[in-house]
Design a protein around this nucleic acid. Structure first.
Lengths: 341, 341
DNA sequence: ATAACTCGGTTAAACGTTTAACTAAAATTT
DNA sequence: AAATTTTAGTTAAACGTTTAACCGAGTTAT
């Protein structure tokens, strides 16, 4: 039988209020009494009822985690790793996470995640790009929210972002340092801040190196940055440009698609074409050749986001915060110095 | 401002009890009154407080999901997909899932998942193998539990299992039908019921085909069925057996390791050696060549497990149930007829 | 005509906490 | 020594539901 605060009070010979004060350290109680209560709690294996605490406090102890179906289902465990990070930190902070995925084509009349409708969360973490109309609807609930890897149009909330610009610079500089000048950029969904920042970094690196930016080396017309788009983008690019010696793909998924096309069509990587990706997902290591990429600290991003949210929840005042997590060049075998013609 | 049942009652001009009856369909209310209440609920955008409902009902509305760290972190999204299935069904049934990962070397004195200690769940889903002492500790809490892809030693609970024996038969038969007779089995962790059943299927298929079972073609001494183990296992096998023409790996992770070794060492797949895996994880499609494998319906397993648990929760009586989910041969390009010597 | 049901509701207790308001005793100040 | 403050605790209301017990008005059976 589950024991309640009443049982503890009776066992310790005090009122239930005293037990509550001891549990929450919310009022000074003599150490003698405190010990009696603590002993009773232990002997009865008492744990406060969450429901009761939640009811009276008006809190839920839950954090909602939202991401789109396609992000959750994608092969590369990118957002999954971020989720894991939030879960680790939630454990420290005593929160539970309620995870839900939503349709990327969220309709005006689609129902919101049920944990929002049912007031089952104290705050929300949004990972990756989600539809603008969903953001509007969510923000009307005035729940503290942290965005990971996306900047909502109406800038309102704490953000945890990748240093995409820096990453774009690093990737492109790496190729430039290897002697490449005909460097293609394979991107997608140019409205996504993360992806367009990577492109910005690419352009900036070229400018810095006094290499002319050629628009016909930049492909960004795919809707989603996935493997298939990568495959098709490099295909159409190479059909028009034979002299490309290096490719910077805006993420590893597209890079894998690019690599597949190159492997299928007798381009040797990196001998004929160097290839660099972005994200550093697990699959990169198993590719042939292993992919050079820009590492994004995914688990750490989740941890930081949860810390930020818990902080906001505790202080009540939403400190407009923005964390830019650093990235790192991971040199593997898909890039090399330009071959002499 | 959040509206409560009181607001609805006032708006509809009835007592709060009537509102409750309408919400839960628990007593006959005239359709006229019912409509008034429904209208009030809608106009106030009322949603019952979970905490209050939970408090009075003694339930939590939550399901705990347990799996080991290494299962959650592994590259192949196997258990992740199972989780997704449970989440889908939880949405239908109105439950929230609290996910936690635990250390595979769970110590006698390690704390149980906090959702168990804090009475935050009504039931538990365990995915994959977990330590025996953890099972003991969990079962002492008498929470309805469903096991997915693992048979606990003390058989107590509903189970959702893969038809591993049948899968082992199918995989091996496929290779036999292609003309192979020197078929290796690459496995691991032979105490894991799923893996040992796959081996059983392998042996049975050979027997049925009157092919002699050779123990030196069976490698099962790795602790975990992962890529590295696959790589090392095939390496040591081929160093002693040059005449192997086909390999059945106990799962896709090991198969990928095997494939990497074969690719690295100038064995052509499937020309020199045919290779079949088990699980059908996303990565298989991107391999070179794409992996023939036995598909396991992962999402569906999650759905079935959640249905089973919800059923147990509703009926209270734990119907000792066991669901064996069927598997399917997915022929891709890593297997072919034996080459003529 | 009256007793016995049925129908459509209402009242109030209960769930397990937190916390504001109170109190009695002890300690401190004047 | 009286007045005041501090300490260590208690009492009771409140949170938002569910549901057993109750009730008055029709309806039906006798």
């Amino acid at each position: 039988m589950k024991s309640t605060i009443k049982d503890v009070a009776k066992e310790a010979g005090v009122s239930i209020a005293t037990v509550s004060f001891v549990i929450n350290n919310s009022k000074h109680i003599s150490s003698e009494t405190k010990n009696r209560v603590l002993k009773a709690i232990k002997s009865l294996n008492y744990h406060p009822s969450k429901s009761a605490v939640n009811l009276v406090s008006g809190k839920t102890g839950n954090i909602g985690f939202i991401l789109t179906d396609d992000h959750f289902l994608r092969t590369e465990p990118f957002y999954t790793s971020i989720f894991l990070g939030t879960e680790f930190e939630a454990r420290n902070a005593g929160y539970y996470i309620l995870l839900t995925s939503i349709n990327p084509d969220f309709n005006k009349n689609d129902p919101l995640p049920r944990f929002i409708l049912n007031n089952s969360v104290d705050g929300i973490i949004v990972a990756g790009k989600i539809p603008a109309n969903l953001i509007d609807r969510i923000s009307s609930y005035n729940l503290p929210t942290v965005y990971i890897d996306y900047i909502p149009t109406k800038n309102c909330c704490p953000l945890v972002l990748i240093d995409n610009l820096q990453g774009g610079l690093m990737a492109t500089n790496h190729l430039i340092e290897l002697g490449h000048t005909n460097i293609a950029f394979i991107g997608a969904d140019i409205e996504h801040p993360s992806l367009s920042d990577r492109l910005k970094g690419y352009k900036q690196a070229l400018e810095n190196a006094k290499i002319q930016i050629k628009n016909n080396l930049i492909v960004t017309n795919s809707k989603y940055p996935d493997r298939v788009s990568g495959y098709n983008s490099i295909k159409s690019l190479l059909s028009k440009n034979k002299n490309v010696t290096a490719v910077f793909a805006c993420n590893d998924a597209m890079a894998i698609g690019v690599l597949n096309y190159l492997n299928d069509n007798d381009y040797k990587v990196p001998k004929d074409i160097s290839l660099i990706g972005f994200d550093d997902v697990e699959a990169d290591l198993m590719l042939n050749p292993p992919l050079t990429t820009i590492r994004v600290p995914k688990i750490e991003m989740g941890i930081e986001a949860m810390k930020l949210l818990v902080n906001t929840l505790k202080n009540k005042k939403s400190l407009l915060n923005k964390i830019l997590v650093p990235v790192e060049l991971i040199e593997r075998e898909s890039t090399s110095t330009i071959r002499k013609k």
